[in-house]
Design a binder for these strands. Structure first.
Lengths: 196, 196
DNA sequence: CTCCTTCGCGTACCGTTGGTATGTGAAGGT
DNA sequence: ACCTTCACATACCAACGGTACGCGAAGGAG
């Protein structure tokens, strides 16, 4: 069913298209890359592209989904290596910072995505991919009394936004211990949430 | 010198162009607005537009500069109403949140700007417009011992990113006391920076 | 007042872009 | 052996950002 020469070729074309367009979008930005360049790099034509994706925006959406899943998986894997919910939160945040330091992830997920898809859709995708986990972790910590009772949504957005911007800055920072300093400051903020 | 019929007409055309394009960019986003629509709304032609601006991107840059100055002025005015550096910081952050709740400001300054101009240029403009003041306030507080000695740059980016994302979320939040809850959480984080 | 220059802007046009309609040949069922 | 379906190629289009050039009014020089 999922097999056959035609299905295999289809999958391969789609994967090549995603791979090449992701490479180009990541290196030069969504707006600066034309479809002609993409289909040329993938050694196909626009007909093939539009057979797999509804539009240039739809292609970008598929790439973003892929990037977000990769980041979310790294964060989840790191967090699940710990038992204590508080350590899960801190380790998850560290893992997110590390994953977001990848230039590809930054250009696609943090810079272009909100402008290309609109903030609302970007937000919805980020929610289901990673912000949901963050909110859940915070809820758990509130439930067990580690964090003072308070609405989790504002907290989620403040932390998410802080880490996103910090990751973008780290990419251009020349100071070799900028990552350590950033983590120290973020850790300081997280500690502030602990019940006194 | 700055007067004369020709100079007055020039200024008026430029201002009309900025006003209309800002309105359109803010309401539908940079990518979804064409130059034809802009010059039509301003009752001029593309010749006039390109006489005042080098490109569509350059037009956007001029608008962004204007928006950032407005926000920065509101923040500075609020901060300077206080004497205590700590109150200047907190009041400034509150003012920034309030100013960034304007949908026009969000679409132009927070959503489109990084993608249109690239993160580096956006960062540079934000730096000279408002982030510089934030960093200065933090430096002052460190110098006077209110905040523990630490690098200010990571702190600046964490706080700036947190406030940006929070402002975007507040725009879509239905909960009427979302602003209060957000400020409570942010205030909690700021308090954490105070020397123990 | 006259002449010439400059300036602000309009007109006409171009190359490229995202998107579409249609053709085509191989794969797969019957 | 036949017909359908599918994956993709080809050819084309409207709209876009951008440019070259023309034109009329404003302003300085004599």
């Amino acid at each position: 069913m999922t097999d056959g020469a035609r299905a295999r070729r289809r999958e391969q074309t789609r994967r090549t298209l995603l791979r090449e367009s992701r490479r180009l979008f990541a290196s030069r930005g969504y707006g600066a890359v034309g479809l002609a360049e993409i289909v040329d790099a993938a050694a196909v034509t626009k007909g093939a592209l539009y057979h797999h994706f509804d539009s240039k925006t739809d292609l970008f959406r598929a790439i973003l989904e892929q990037v977000q899943q990769e980041v979310a998986q790294k964060v989840a894997a790191t967090a699940q290596a710990h038992d204590d919910p508080w350590e899960q939160l801190t380790a998850g945040c560290r893992a997110f910072l590390a994953a977001s330091s990848d230039p590809d992830v930054q250009q696609i997920m943090l810079i272009d995505a909100p402008a290309v898809l609109g903030w609302a859709e970007w937000r919805a995708m980020d929610e289901s991919a990673s912000a949901h986990h963050l909110a859940e972790a915070l809820s758990t910590l509130i439930a067990q009394g580690t964090i003072a009772p308070q609405p989790v949504e504002p907290l989620t957005h403040l932390l998410s936004g802080a880490m996103n911007e910090a990751a973008l800055w780290l990419a251009t920072a020349t100071d070799p211990n900028a990552l350590a300093a950033t983590w120290a400051a973020l850790s300081q903020m997280l500690e502030a949430l602990r019940h006194r």
